[in-house]
């Protein structure tokens, strides 16, 4: 975020103070080791009560990887994430297609745009019940889908077996968004692809517009 002009403020899991931030990012990692189900313990972290309140008030909330899993566990986002189809951890650069501009990450990004961003997860297979899935698709809650370099969505370019190749979703209100790929690993051109830049730039714009 700081490369793009924002300021990161670390928030401590055991506290209940959001320190007046303009947007909340739940980053990736292995919260509490993820020995149970990913994010299942973290949703009970004291800070999460404040995050839920912040989201309910319309504040922008982004969950990346483990953060996405936590948002699903907390009921802020639909669906769930289970083990990859291969049953193995995967660290790889993939392509995702932007499916909705109604999220803090994609407001400034055109639908249909293809971004190159790494994934790195063992439990990234997005699943939802049949009805839920129909609702997610029907209401346009899918924000990102895995795809080929040219935007084609097919099984070959679905790295983890996610339902409908879903890589990220938002809530109905459009202020909470979660995704498995790591936009923060795709900002600095020295380190590889920069598909995360437009997403995080959009988040900054979104947060600034609310101030």
């Amino acid at each position: 975020m700081e490369l793009l002009g924002g300021r990161g403020v670390p928030l401590w899991h055991a506290e209940r103070d959001l320190a007046g931030v303009d947007a909340v990012i739940l980053p990736g990692g292995f919260s509490y080791g993820d020995y149970l189900r990913c994010g299942a313990i973290a949703r009970f972290a004291p800070i999460m009560e404040e995050v839920v309140r912040f989201a309910a008030a319309g504040g922008p909330v982004v969950g990346i990887c483990n953060g996405f899993q936590i948002l699903c566990e907390a009921g802020l986002l639909p669906g769930a994430l289970i083990r990859n189809r291969s049953l193995r951890f995967i660290c790889r650069v993939v392509h995702v297609r932007v499916e909705s501009s109604r999220s803090p990450l994609t407001e400034g990004v055109a639908v249909g745009e293809v971004l190159e961003i790494p994934i790195k997860h063992g439990e990234g297979q997005f699943v939802a019940g049949e009805e839920d899935l129909a609702r997610i698709e029907g209401e346009g809650l899918v924000v990102f889908r895995y795809c080929g370099p040219d935007g084609t969505v097919d099984d070959e370019h679905n790295p983890n077996g996610s339902a409908h190749a879903i890589a990220g979703v938002r809530n109905e209100a459009g202020n909470v968004v979660g995704l498995m790929p790591h936009p923060e690993h795709a900002v600095d051109p020295d380190l590889g692809p920069t598909g995360g830049q437009p997403l995080l730039a959009s988040l900054l714009q979104h947060a600034l517009a609310r101030v």
Partner: peptide, 25 residues
């Protein structure tokens, strides 16, 4: 093998596995 390793975390990996040597900023 190496796709099962997170070679990106900490955000300093200039070149990960698969080449002659890894480069870490």
């Amino acid at each position: 093998v190496w796709e099962q390793y997170d070679h990106l975390v900490q955000g300093n990996t200039l070149a990960g596995p698969g080449g002659d040597a890894a480069l870490v900023r």
